[in-house]
């Protein structure tokens, strides 16, 4: 017998009856809201310290670290620092340190991208090395080599730089459009190899224009130095007066 009201009906099976009526909860929340909040906090810190933060993205092996080594030769390396992400090894940080640039390596394990919290950790580790944001002109966040996943994560940067090397082929922007869409600046790297690998420059520029319509595009070579002065200018940095 029903115990609630003594109505004489069999007692309902509690497992068969939902505790409450089905209902819809409208949320409309960004999936990356936690990362976005972390990125907003970083952006404020970078702005307060007067440092330009660049998120450098590309596929593996397209020349991110070589480009930074070449920049270090042209800039005051004490006003530059790098936070570099890779799945494993600290090879890149050691290369940059050898070039005189303060660098910390974030090893992400299986994670295919950097997140704002990892960059905050990198800034913290730079501090431990005696490098404060205030003394820097440029902080480069060298992302994990990957043309897909890192594009979704805001790292608090003021400039997003996507690098496409001539050896990858001129159609990569069309194949990996989402990451190019967020770019402020696209660099075609290893331009010294363009002829050797049959790189179609006009096709590359046309492809970039279709998927990165906001971006400025520069051709550079870390090896020959071509385009590096234009890059330094595009980064909003002062060129050294005498070299």
């Amino acid at each position: 017998m029903c115990r609630d009201c003594a109505c004489g009906e069999p007692a309902p099976d509690p497992a068969a009856v939902p505790a409450s009526a089905p209902r819809e909860l409208t949320l409309h929340t960004a999936l990356l809201q936690r990362n976005d909040a972390g990125a907003a906090a970083l952006r404020q810190r970078f702005a307060a310290a007067g440092v330009r933060a660049v998120n450098l993205l590309s596929s593996p092996g397209s020349g991110k670290t070589a480009l930074l080594e070449a920049l270090a030769q042209r800039l005051d390396p004490t006003r530059l620092a790098v936070i570099v992400g890779d799945l494993a090894t600290d090879n890149d940080a050691r290369r940059l340190q050898a070039a005189g640039v303060p660098a910390v390596q974030i090893t992400t394990g299986q994670a295919c991208h950097l997140e704002a919290s990892m960059v905050a950790e990198g800034v913290h580790r730079l501090n431990h090395q005696g490098i404060s944001l205030e003394q820097l002109e440029l902080l480069v966040i060298e992302n994990v080599g990957n043309l897909v996943c890192p594009g979704a994560y805001d790292l608090g940067e003021s400039l997003r730089l996507v690098l496409l090397s001539t050896t990858e082929g001129e159609d990569k922007p069309l194949k990996y459009a989402p990451i190019f869409h967020g770019a402020d600046l696209v660099l075609i790297s290893k331009i010294d190899l363009a002829e050797a690998v049959g790189f179609d420059r006009a096709a590359a520029h046309a492809a970039i224009a279709r998927v990165a319509p906001h971006a400025q595009v520069l051709e550079v070579s870390a090896r020959s130095g071509a385009g590096l002065d234009a890059l330094i200018e595009a980064l909003g940095l002062a060129l050294p007066a005498v070299r």
Binding site: A19, P22, R23, L25, L27, H28, L31, H181
Partner: peptide
């Protein structure tokens, strides 16, 4: 470019 949790249905 959106990436969003729109809604849930719950009981």
């Amino acid at each position: 470019r959106d990436l969003r949790l729109l809604s849930l249905e719950v009981v």
